[in-house]
Simulated scan of single mutants.
Amino acid sequence: MEYSYEISDPQVLRVVAHPLRVRLLGLLRADGPATASELGRRTGESSGSTSYHLRELFKYGFIEEDADRHDGRERRWRARHRYTSWNSRELSGTAEGREAVRIMRLRQVDELAHAVQEFDESDWEPGWVEVAGMSDHLHELPPAALGEFMARAGEVLAELAARHAGDPDARQVHLWIGGLPRRPEEQA
């Protein structure tokens, strides 16, 4: 699996920003290859619907057929990339690009809300319950400092994942890192 798919076309970003496509791609990345029927059961959608959206993801290079685990009856799909990324500054040069970025950010918030709703403390050991959660911070930073924070957070996460690879207590963990400036009138 390649590391990242860098999107530079707003139309391609809109393709992946569809709510079901975001979810299907996320499931393939997190849980590995699956068929349209399996994904339909996981998402509560018909296999016809998931099949259509999987073909769209395939058409734009987000997923590929999993030739290693072909069952002969139904295609198995797998994600081609671990992450999807885009340059918001470049895409925001047009109205179409600004709208695509806005829609994708809203999809990310939807996924965050879904993860928070699904988390039930009674399902987890006390150690996980103690460290699970979210925090918000409000600081005055210039763009360069926010960029540095985002880059360093990614580096720290990569280092921790490498250091703890194979740990029997390790689990997949949802992590969101974001930073958005506030307009001055919001600060009053």
Score class of each variant (00 low, 15 high):
34 A>L: 02
74 E>T: 12
4 S>D: 08
33 P>A: 15
121 E>M: 10
183 R>N: 14
28 L>Q: 04
80 R>Q: 10
9 D>E: 10
67 A>M: 06
70 H>E: 14
188 A>V: 13
29 R>D: 00
24 L>W: 01
115 A>Y: 07
97 G>C: 07
174 H>N: 10
79 A>N: 02
36 A>P: 01
151 A>Y: 05
143 P>E: 02
161 A>M: 04
122 S>A: 15
20 L>E: 05
41 R>K: 14
143 P>H: 02
64 E>S: 13
152 R>G: 04
39 L>M: 06
78 R>N: 06
187 Q>G: 12
117 Q>D: 13
73 R>D: 15
83 Y>E: 05
130 E>M: 12
164 H>G: 10
112 L>A: 09
15 V>A: 06
172 Q>T: 14
138 L>C: 06
176 W>C: 15
143 P>C: 03
130 E>Q: 14
174 H>C: 03
167 D>Q: 08
149 F>R: 07
147 G>S: 12
105 R>V: 07
57 L>N: 03
94 T>R: 05
141 L>H: 10
84 T>K: 01
106 L>M: 15
50 T>A: 06
64 E>T: 07
1 M>I: 05
39 L>H: 01
160 L>H: 04
71 D>C: 11
17 A>M: 02
38 E>F: 02
71 D>L: 10
23 R>G: 03
160 L>C: 08
126 P>L: 11
137 H>L: 12
120 D>I: 01
171 R>F: 10
108 Q>K: 12
123 D>R: 15
188 A>C: 11
87 N>M: 07
136 D>H: 14
51 S>C: 01
108 Q>N: 15
106 L>D: 15
119 F>G: 00
18 H>K: 13
92 S>A: 09
187 Q>A: 15
148 E>A: 15
152 R>Y: 12
167 D>G: 09
175 L>E: 15
22 V>M: 14
145 A>D: 11
78 R>W: 04
104 M>G: 05
180 L>P: 03
122 S>Y: 12
31 D>M: 11
120 D>P: 00
5 Y>E: 10
48 G>Y: 05
172 Q>A: 15
148 E>L: 09
50 T>S: 08
44 G>V: 02
168 P>I: 03
42 R>Q: 13
58 F>P: 00
146 L>Q: 01
64 E>M: 05
150 M>I: 12
146 L>G: 06
143 P>L: 00
38 E>L: 08
136 D>L: 13
107 R>M: 09
29 R>V: 03
137 H>S: 14
137 H>K: 07
131 V>W: 02
110 D>R: 08
113 A>E: 12
92 S>L: 01
187 Q>R: 13
32 G>C: 07
147 G>K: 04
83 Y>F: 12
95 A>Q: 13
